[in-house]
Nucleic acid binder design. Structure first.
Ligand code: MN
Ligand code: MN
Ligand code: MN
Ligand code: MN
Lengths: 220, 220
DNA sequence: ACAAATATTTAGTTTTGTCTAAAAATTTAT
DNA sequence: ATAAATTTTTAGACAAAACTAAATATTTGT
């Protein structure tokens, strides 16, 4: 597969949420910042290669081969993102563009070794799951800290309350988006939570917990 | 610069030993495993972009811009090779193909951070020098261990005597091509040498030393 | 049901990088 | 110095991936 074909397959995967829904020509064009006519040309080629089912005017669906190809590219993308953040000290919001290039490097051995070197991570720096070599992965969902059971672990991806006061609180307590957060305990009395973040344990009120979103892997 | 242009510039650099000699169309074609007519086409384009001086039938020379571009690509290639060997545990003779792809990733920040992460290495796993960001580097040369002064450090890149006996000796003493070797001391009496290899100190006879080639950086 | 709006495809170009076959320049050998 | 051998360039094509403009299909609103 060429670099361009890989990017199309990945876009179709994301737009169709795997193989759930057919994806329209225009949505692909928008996602990839190109023209619908270019998309049509490419869909014919991908169909020729049996990576997608394509019916004129009816949108496109990945084949099983296409789905596995997409997952392989997504696996590479997310492993490289982990490398950039964990080893090279990139910020979580700086890695996408570089990973967009690195995901196309062809070498199975490289990805196997990179995976091992990173400690076989299950999620990328944005909390998104990393598919295994054979395309298995758990879905991830966005949840408020207070909605999660003790023992949950996830990545801070957003706030409910974006007031200055709340953002200042987070800043003061050294909590940033992209941080890994683990729920250690919950206090029945006042709903406060004991958490570990950046290796440090701390206690937060229910009010804080109900305004902070975590990206977590779904159970089974 | 496109991936293909970068590969041509690098080939011209290597064939012309920097900017020393003009490089022929056919030699480039051979090096890049392509046809002379394709090379001619590309030379016109590179000349248009002022990366090379090109005179029909007279070969091609890098411009200063071309030379700096070549060094930048070589820097990336060699830094990635160090990464693959030092961090991902590739063997020194397995890294070239992958580095050939990785060298084209575009991100100055990535290379700066990779360089720092690797500890600003001065040579790659083959003993070849890694140019600095601004294109400075020492030349490297191949020397017999016995020809080098105390304190020299280099990478084992070849043998003079390729007899089974000698190769078995190296194997038995756990000396492999690609290993870093440092000369700690020389004994006047019998010419034997004290060396450090893979962190371990050992003593070798003059006969051994005069049959093992090291790639070392030239003094100044 | 039909016209208008929207989505998609087709037709015809362009750019990049490659190729083969033929022509032209240069080098080598007599 | 000239013919033969070699190197290099030109001419003409092709495949990949993009684009614009025009044609066609589908969907929406009345
Ligand atoms: Mn990409
Ligand atoms: Mn990600
Ligand atoms: Mn390359
Ligand atoms: Mn090397």
């Amino acid at each position: 597969m060429t670099l361009s074909e890989e990017d199309y397959i990945k876009a179709i995967y994301h737009l169709g949420k795997g193989m759930e829904q057919a994806v329209s020509t225009n949505s692909i064009a928008e996602q990839m910042d190109t023209k619908p006519s270019s998309v049509t040309d490419m869909l014919k080629k991908l169909s020729e290669k049996d990576l997608v089912f394509y019916k004129k005017y009816k949108g496109v669906l990945l084949t099983e081969t296409g789905r596995l190809s997409a997952l392989s590219i997504i696996r590479k993308h997310r492993l490289w993102e982990v490398f950039l953040v964990d080893k090279l000290d990139f910020a979580w919001d700086e890695v996408h563009e570089v990973a967009e290039q690195l995901e196309h490097i062809k070498s199975e051995k490289l990805i196997d070794k990179l995976d091992a070197y990173l400690g076989n991570p299950k999620v990328d720096p944005h909390g998104d799951p990393i598919p295994s070599k054979d395309g298995e992965f758990k879905k991830s969902v966005k949840r408020l800290v207070t909605e999660l059971p003790i023992g949950s672990q996830g990545i801070c991806v957003g706030v409910n309350d974006s007031s200055v006061a709340f953002l200042k609180f987070l800043d003061k307590n050294n909590i940033s988006l992209g941080d890994t957060l683990e729920i250690l305990d919950k206090e029945d009395f006042d709903g406060s939570l004991s958490i570990r973040i950046k290796g440090k344990e701390m206690r937060i009120s229910e009010q804080i917990g109900s305004n902070l979103f975590l990206e977590v892997l779904e159970k089974d």
